[in-house]
Design a protein around this nucleic acid. Structure first.
Lengths: 239, 239
DNA sequence: ACCTGAACACCGTTCAAGT
DNA sequence: ACCTGAACACCGTTCAAGT
């Protein structure tokens, strides 16, 4: 006999089955929208239709959430790599670089967290701050015949390459997405001119080069620098 | 050493002649010691022997202080450059790079602020987030005969080089300096082993390469990468 | 002119209590 | 087992008031 439909609709609303993953997901969404500053335990709980204190069942505190968000972000990385490309070490570094770049551009407000939280250990360098990713990196390059010194040297230069480029790109995208600047209630002045915040002397080089400096060359710079880095590694590996 | 040892003790305590610079100085000291998180208007006021509300005479709020701290940090840079070295563009970039590096290592807890605050304008890229420094950079390279495209391209690659390397170095130094980890009241376990926080599978590459990965090669990496960057720029400039 | 007390609207986190 | 109310010790910021 069919029992009455008691299986679905937990009881009242959607949030009865709370768990750690749901908390972390909600936190990531919130940070993407409002930045790390905007994340509070109380507002997060509200998003989940629960009181703030309930979160402490699944999470030891705010810091724990931030750490978990970083891990969550990085966790898909190794799975997302292009296997075709990953058949040479050059291809592997390329697909890894592009995967992390995509992630940084998809989460410009969250990426600074990946970049600046204290690494849990000195061998977990940002932005590859996940044991899984670092392990994959080391194993793969060793598999391609890199010596220990070459693997470690490559890990270091690759990390700082990614960190520099992506943090810079994320900062630009983050600024575009987020400003949350007051909509200025009085309809006056300030005609969408983003330089207005800094006043430039009329004879300055910055002023003269302003347009060129503001161009978005992110992708291009990234490709060129990555190419240079690979060349440099190739030199070390082949000798 | 520091100039809190004022010559003429104003009246009762040190803080009668409060002003913006004193507030910013105190904030910088506090962030160096306790990180950005640890900076509160109330505690900062206490350091200055004043009530929190007094600070608002000199500063529009917490954000204003953070921005001012970044500016203060960068403000000495152009003055600190080695004039001798700065007579070639290579030497100029070298002394500039080393000056900023010194600053990052002297203020490892404050440097992330320089790196991650939203730039006030798209042509103020971290970590050279100061109009003064950027202006100096552009003028100097133009003076050495760089075309507009070369100046701007160099500004971009130099910025992300510095950002990647120095944020990584600062993170390591910051972690050493700061942990503020509880002194564990009971004298048990945890024998200063920093890896304890992450448990490694016994067959992992990370575990095998652990020692080599933890070596501090900061200075060396920095020099080598800077050299490579200069070579790359030279190629572009000479053709 | 410079500083402050009191107040407001928030925080993160603990703990004992509810179901 | 899971959630919560009440409480604690903090926040940043405003405003009217003191000197």
């Amino acid at each position: 006999m069919d029992r009455s439909a008691r299986s679905n609709l937990p009881h009242r609303r959607g949030a009865r089955g709370l768990n750690r993953d749901l908390v972390v997901d909600a936190a990531l969404r919130s940070i993407d929208l409002h930045g790390t500053q905007g994340l509070s335990m109380r507002k997060l709980a509200q998003d989940l239709d629960v009181e703030a204190m309930s979160l402490y069942r699944y999470v030891t505190g705010r810091e724990d959430i931030l750490e978990a968000v970083v891990t969550r972000l990085l966790d898909g990385v190794t799975a997302a790599l292009d296997d075709q490309l990953a058949q040479t070490w050059q291809g592997y570094l390329q697909t890894l670089a592009h995967t992390v770049r995509t992630l940084a551009l998809e989460h410009p407000r969250t990426f600074p967290l990946v970049a600046t939280r204290h690494p849990a250990a000195p061998w977990l360098r940002p932005p590859l701050r996940s044991l899984e990713v670092v392990e994959h990196f080391l194993t793969t390059l060793t598999g391609f015949g890199f010596t220990d010194d070459q693997v470690v040297g490559t890990y270091r230069s690759f990390s700082s390459f990614l960190l520099g480029h992506l943090l810079l790109e994320a900062a630009v995208r983050g600024a575009e997405t987020s400003p949350a600047e007051e909509p200025l209630d009085e309809g006056d002045a300030q005609i969408g001119n983003r330089d207005a915040e800094v006043d430039l002397p009329p004879d300055s080089e910055v002023l003269r080069l302003r347009t060129k400096l503001s161009e978005d060359r992110g992708e291009e710079e990234f490709e060129v620098s990555l190419e240079t880095l690979l060349d440099r590694i190739e030199l070390q590996v082949s000798q």
